[in-house]
Amino acid sequence: MQILRTTSENNDFQDLVKNLDAYLAEMDGDDHAFYDQYNKIDLLKNCIVVFENEKPVGCGAIKPINENTMEVKRMFTLPEFRGKGLAVSVLKELEIWTKELGYEKTVLETGKKQIEAVALYKKCNYTIIPNYGQYAGIENSVCFEKIL
């Protein structure tokens, strides 16, 4: 496994995000348009692509939301590569990068239907918090934070 720090201009990152968006469109159904508006990647400066045997198989990103908090975005692993710990590796690398940049915590939102994602964040010691920002009051969202 190799981990690459990059930006959203990276073609492998963009291709993985296309796969993620297709997956989420199916999972979220009618709610997809609401979530999609908050997941544009054109301004992401801190992105990760994970490779297995030189094939891009997973990704994630962080973006600042205030002076001490980064938001984890665009976490995805190709279905055939799940269960190998790749998402945990991406998340840990994003946390390390967050700390290197001087931020104190990470937050994120995922859908309640994303059972695997919810389990991943709990496994990685994220705590459920009240829905923040645009997710406040959204029934299908669950938000997490981790103090680093």
Rank of each mutant, 00 (worst) to 15 (best):
A33R: 03
C143L: 09
K105M: 11
I96T: 15
C143S: 10
V17E: 14
E100M: 11
P79S: 09
L16E: 11
P56A: 13
K105G: 03
L44C: 04
E26C: 00
E52Q: 14
D31N: 15
E95R: 12
L94G: 07
T110C: 09
E145K: 12
V90C: 11
L43M: 08
Y38V: 01
N131V: 04
D42F: 06
A25M: 10
L44F: 03
L4V: 08
I62N: 12
F13A: 06
E139I: 09
Y35K: 01
G83Q: 06
E54C: 01
T77K: 02
W97V: 01
D12C: 03
C47Q: 05
Q2H: 11
M27V: 15
E104G: 06
M75F: 02
L20I: 04
I129G: 10
G83L: 01
L94W: 03
Q114M: 14
G29F: 05
M27Q: 15
F76K: 00
N125S: 15
K146S: 04
E80Q: 13
I41C: 01
Y38K: 00
R82S: 07
F13L: 05
D21R: 12
N68L: 02
K40Q: 14
I96L: 14
G137V: 02
V142I: 15
G111A: 13
V50K: 07
D28A: 12
Y23P: 00
E71M: 05
L78Q: 10
F81N: 12
R74C: 06
V142K: 04
I115A: 12
A25N: 11
P56D: 06
N140R: 12
P79D: 09
N39H: 13
E116W: 00
N39P: 00
G137Q: 05
V118P: 05
K84P: 04
G133F: 08
V57L: 09
V50G: 10
E95M: 11
N125F: 13
K73C: 07
M75A: 06
L43F: 13
I115S: 12
K112I: 12
A136C: 09
Q2V: 00
C143F: 09
I115P: 00
E100F: 03
D15H: 10
E52S: 10
N131T: 05
G29I: 08
V49D: 02
S89K: 15
K45V: 00
L4N: 10
Y126V: 05
T77F: 04
G102A: 03
E26Q: 08
K123F: 10
Y38H: 14
I96M: 13
D15S: 12
Y121I: 03
G133P: 06
E139S: 15
